[in-house]
Design a protein around this nucleic acid. Structure first.
Lengths: 162, 162
DNA sequence: TGCCAATTCATCCTTTCGGGTGAAGATGAA
DNA sequence: TTCATCTTCACCCGAAAGGATGAATTGGCA
């Protein structure tokens, strides 16, 4: 696990370096072109018709905008890793209702999920073996399964048990 | 869950709007100051000593840098939410060895975890029922459990099955 | 008060599971 | 080659699980 993580981080660093270089060169070229274009236009139209201050202001604004744009494009999005931790298990009342599973059946399901036999469940809940079997039968019908292993599976899927 | 998420997104949008406005004003002021400084310097030192092209180039570079810097500072880090979802399940070779569980037994354990009966497992793996029972017996001994529900539990704990 | 659902327990029966033992073929390492 | 392990399958037996049905008791709700 640790190896995988560090490997991917290295990849990320390498790829980001190359990507940065490529982008820097790209925007550098655009910048050079822009300067060249300005020079060409300069002597033809502007320099004698407008005051030098406005000319400088235009250049300043243009390159500021270019810089901002380049700055945004140049950087990769900063990643904030949000870890989604174990949710502490909240019983799904909805699924409990929709399945029609009763409180007592849920008790049995919980112990069933711990790998207990019907007899052990009966002992824990101070019930007779027959009663536990009744509840398990009810569970299988309501969960629409055939075996206790499947009942445990489905119980977890439906967030009835942790 | 949905309420919490949308609430935090609204907060984020509001706070980012205000933060952006404050920063924009701040950097706008800096930009204005810089232009003013240039104007002041212009007539005093540079305009007669250097060719106009170099002067324009310096301004272009300065404002490009300022723009890049402003562009970086102006934006809050883009959040890329990386969900650390279900780890893709890596079988624990260590636990496999330490328990002494064989490849075939692991196959059976996997299907057992899906809630299949021994007969169904036999059908899936093209084995006889007896063979599957042999494997399950071996599993119970090696996992030190009594029932298949417990075997599934322990198999998951030991990262032998997903 | 009367009804309904949940809970409890029972009996009967079938299927599945789990334990024990044995054994034959395949594979692979010493 | 020999030996250990894995894989496959068989038979037997008891225990557990599962299915069907019936019935007594209880607690809440109309």
């Amino acid at each position: 696990m640790r190896n995988v993580a560090s490997a991917s981080i290295e990849q990320l660093i390498n790829s980001s370096i190359f990507a940065c270089m490529r982008k820097a060169i790209f925007y550098g070229l655009i910048l050079a072109l822009l300067i060249f274009a300005l020079k060409t236009i300069e002597y033809k139209f502007l320099v004698r018709e407008l005051p030098i201050e406005i000319y400088i202001g235009i250049i300043a604004v243009m390159f500021s905008v270019l810089g901002i744009w380049a700055g945004l494009k140049l950087t990769r999005p900063k990643r904030v890793i949000v870890r989604v931790a174990q949710s502490p298990f909240v019983l799904s009342e909805d699924n409990l209702k929709s399945t029609g599973i009763s409180r007592r059946e849920l008790d049995v399901l919980e112990l069933m999920a711990e790998g207990l036999s019907n007899q052990e469940i009966a002992d824990r809940l101070f019930l007779s073996l027959n009663t536990v079997k009744t509840h398990t039968s009810g569970l299988f019908i309501k969960l629409d399964v055939k075996r206790r292993t499947q009942a445990v599976q489905k119980g977890k899927e439906l967030r009835l048990i942790p």
